[in-house]
């Protein structure tokens, strides 16, 4: 038994360094540090006001939902470039159906969600059954949905529907006088649901198994095809939901809404500690990824003298740093 005892101690030692929660903790730590920095530097500007923190959720709720969908795809080792276009398309579709066709939002929302999910399903089907790289298929999705935006209308459609207005303006009060928007609450609910699905259902575990080793998953008798297609369907659904939240946030449909948002979503997932090669990561990490990206924007706003493009540069630097961390972590695991 001495051999096995040896395994045990070795395993214990490695676990600390290899713990898959480590990247999430790093990101959470980074968030706290950045927040502390902001609190220290902009103390007199009301940075510590609880609402500043809540606004992170209000301003980034749609991104969180999109990033949660992207997390599913990336966990299987795939990628979804169509996120931004599906969001843009959903804003257009919603605005057009509500404003130009006079349909009630209650009917429009399920339609939009269904279209997004079906788009994701189609992409997943082609990716899996015809063995075409996800990158290319979702790129076609990117073109397609952005194109559909323009087909609906080349002009922006602003929404004056009272239901939309009411939903957008509703404050969900929190203790301490701060509040959240409906969209923020929905995004947090999506996060919680995703966490449950990934960690407490067989489907969720299959997502991890495929990302860990698709060939093994197949040999272990898991339904790989269905799971892979489902993951893109989830991403399509989340993108459409994100589009609805974005519509609430901005109260218009515009063919140029959310251009390039897929990059933000992917960046948030990576910064949140999910490996782009799949199989490792947590949806909670994605939350921190979104919060860190959101906080960068907030800090830049508070600084006042810095311009918006620093957001992109900082995101790039963060991406680089986290990809390096991932690289060294996987490198160590291999040896």
């Amino acid at each position: 038994m001495s051999v096995i005892d040896g395994f045990r101690t070795r395993a214990e030692g490695l676990r600390l360094l290899q713990d898959r929660r480590l990247p999430v903790l790093v990101t959470a730590g980074l968030f706290v540090l950045m927040f502390g920095f902001g609190a220290f530097r902009y103390q007199s500007y009301g940075f510590l006001d609880a609402q500043v923190f809540m606004n992170l959720f209000i301003d980034n709720g749609y991104l969180l939902v999109a990033a949660v969908g992207a997390t599913f795809v990336i966990l299987t080792g795939g990628i979804d470039l169509s996120v931004g276009s599906v969001i843009g398309f959903t804003t257009m579709l919603t605005a057009w159906l509500v404003e130009k066709q006079g349909l009630p939002l209650l009917l429009v929302a399920p339609i939009a969600l269904g279209v997004g999910a079906f788009g994701g399903y189609l992409m997943g089907y082609v990716i899996h059954h015809f063995e075409i790289e996800p990158f290319i298929v979702t790129l076609a999705g990117l073109f397609f949905f952005r194109g559909l935006c323009l087909v609906i209308s080349k002009e922006s459609i602003s929404i004056t529907d009272p239901t939309v207005d009411r939903l957008a303006q509703t404050h969900v009060p929190l203790p301490g006088g701060s509040f959240l928007s409906i969209a923020a609450v929905i995004s947090l609910a999506v996060l919680a649901l995703a966490f449950y699905v990934l960690h407490y259902t067989r489907f969720g575990r299959r997502v991890y198994a495929i990302g860990g080793n698709e060939q093994s998953a197949l040999l272990m008798g898991l339904p790989v095809a269905g799971t892979k297609i489902a993951v893109y369907t989830v991403s399509g659904f989340c993108s459409a939901l994100s589009g609805l939240l974005f519509t609430l946030y901005i109260q218009s449909g515009d063919p140029l809404h959310a251009v390039g948002l897929e990059l933000d979503a992917i960046a948030a997932v990576v910064v949140g500690g999910t490996l782009l090669t799949g199989g490792s990561g947590y949806v909670i990490g994605t939350l921190f990824g979104v919060l860190v990206l959101g906080l960068i924007k907030t800090l830049i706003q508070f600084e006042g003298t810095l311009s918006s493009w620093w957001t992109k540069i900082a995101t790039g630097v963060l991406l680089f740093a986290f990809i390096l961390i991932q690289r060294t972590m996987t490198g160590r695991r291999r040896t």
Binding site: R205, A209, G211, G212, N213, S216, A217, L219, G279
Partner: peptide
């Protein structure tokens, strides 16, 4: 070649 998933726990 061990056809299992390295990223999952032994139990899984």
């Amino acid at each position: 070649e061990v056809n299992l998933c390295q990223n999952l726990s032994v139990a899984e």
